[in-house]
Design a protein around this nucleic acid. Structure first.
Lengths: 178, 178
DNA sequence: CACGCTATTCACATGCATGTGAAGTTGATG
DNA sequence: CATCAACTTCACATGCATGTGAATAGCGTG
């Protein structure tokens, strides 16, 4: 095996690539756009403080248009930001600091939508008197509960990590090994 | 327009159908199989204590094979159960009582997988010393945190709603007749 | 013992999302 | 002012998931 570009404890490019692909695959499996996931993870695992569309296309071996669509989505949902480089035509794409926090807040919104819709369901069923009505009412309670709890989780995370901005590396040890 | 089958405060079949479709669409948008979502919600919004594949095919205006595939998935992930009817060839499909609980437990498992994979990412990056390593390490911490918190949420839900097992979900007064 | 109903499996068609190549647009530079 | 580089938009091809129809297997019934 050739560890050509791997100083003692430095990056293992091959392993990093594998990591990006594995995680992107997992995210894609539950509905996240594949290409956007790859772009996001490539940005996260780069030491530079931003990459251009050309850089991304090169590292991922895809065409620039694919990058274009992927970053448009990522910017729209607030996971990355584009920073036009003053002297140049290039734009740098950069991860927003609270990316995962934002992402999970979106998940919370989904639960809110689920709760709202199930409330309509209870109405459609004529109240919670019937078995079906009771079932949907319970579903509504559950989603409502989860939604509130998720908000609590995010608050706790914010407090634990004081400013969600640029928190220093605090986790040294990797929890578990296979 | 004729509201032929709408007793005063009873089921509004049209609204129920709309509810099923809306919620199924939302679930499909974040990765849940469309047909399985429709079947699940149809079961939930039925007052009978179980429906046959033929019933489901009829109510959803789809072919029996589509039902077959949908219920196989639902049974596999533990959201519904099949109850062979003793005297007949028919099988009744029925929602498991803790369906949403089970479903959310699965979501928790996803976060666990995310945490595990990001731990590998930190290793691939040679530790959390580099900017990228620090970023992935923070991601790992976040997923780990969320995963633990989700477990806490579910426990709290269990306690609030006493036993999640086989709890007669007729929390309200359901005049159940078999 | 044969028939019929119910559910499943197989091969196929349809629809949708996604990535590619070519052309277009915009801003920097000599 | 002309040229070049970088990103974006458009039209198309490919792959994948999903639902349908025909044929099959199993169990209750006359």
């Amino acid at each position: 095996m050739d560890v050509s570009a791997s100083p003692a404890a430095g990056r293992d490019e091959q392993a990093v690539g594998q990591f990006v692909e594995s995680l992107a695959r997992l995210m894609a499996e539950w509905g996240f756009p594949r290409m956007s996931a790859r772009v996001l993870l490539t940005l996260m695992s780069s030491d530079e403080d931003g990459l251009t569309a050309a850089d991304l296309a090169d590292r991922l071996n895809v065409s620039p248009p694919a990058i274009s669509g992927a970053v448009r989505y990522l910017v729209q949902v607030g996971l990355i930001e584009r920073r036009p480089v003053p002297g140049s035509r290039r734009d740098l794409y950069r991860i927003r600091d609270n990316a995962w926090y934002t992402s999970s807040a979106t998940v919370g919104g989904v639960y809110q939508a689920l709760a709202d819709l199930s409330a309509e369901g209870v109405r459609a069923l004529g109240g919670s008197d019937s078995p079906a009505g009771a079932r949907i009412a319970e579903m509504h309670d559950f989603f409502n509960f989860v939604q509130e709890e998720i908000a609590g989780i995010l608050n706790r995370w914010q407090q634990t990590n004081t400013s969600p901005e640029r928190s220093p590396s605090r986790s040294a040890s990797t929890t578990q090994n296979s």
